[in-house]
């Protein structure tokens, strides 16, 4: 396969830093990018591998094969940036799930915050991402993640029948 079309960045030449306003900047091979956008190619399976680095106009600068190859500080900045971008609120407990025609109404706990939302078209919006992680998309377009193994028995009993 022709690899010339893809520019893989040399991890040793990359420096990521956060600027005073909290944006991620990059220095690479004597060039300074005041702000870059980091994107995961496989967000679930390899969250820290094959990370695409883009300029703010969406032009690709290149791909970093593995964030572990970066120096420690750059790695922390990159991981923080990705965590912010790909942040999904994690549901830690289900208080109640009411299944009504066409919609499921969920009352959940996120850490120490309680929030209720509606999920339409349950069979499409409540599903397993892998064996122990499920995702829920609510009617507003928010996405939530649920670690089924971390849930208590009662919560698991509530959500399991809805998982597709």
């Amino acid at each position: 396969m022709d690899n010339e079309l893809t520019c893989y960045l040399d991890a040793e030449k990359i420096i990521f830093r956060t600027n005073e306003n909290g944006f991620c900047m990059m220095e690479y091979a004597d060039e300074i990018y005041k702000r870059v956008n980091l994107l995961k190619t496989c967000p679930q399976i390899s969250p820290h591998k094959f990370i695409c680095v883009q300029k703010m106009d969406s032009t690709e600068i290149g791909i970093i094969k593995d964030l572990n190859e970066l120096d420690e500080e750059s790695k922390i900045v990159a991981i923080n940036e990705l965590e912010k971008k790909y942040f999904l609120p994690e549901i830690t407990k289900f208080v109640s799930i009411k299944i009504k025609p066409g919609t499921a109404f969920m009352d959940c706990i996120f850490g120490n915050v309680r929030k209720s939302f509606a999920v339409r078209d349950v069979s499409h919006n409540v599903f397993y991402v892998d064996n122990h992680t499920a995702r829920i998309n609510d009617s507003d377009g928010n996405r939530y993640i649920v670690n089924i193994n971390k849930l208590n028995k009662k919560s698991r009993k509530m959500i399991e029948p809805l998982l597709y």
Partner: peptide
């Protein structure tokens, strides 16, 4: 703070 009304969430199936 809600995405549904109380009435709808109380409909019975």
């Amino acid at each position: 703070g809600r995405s549904y009304c109380k009435k709808c969430s109380e409909k019975k199936l």
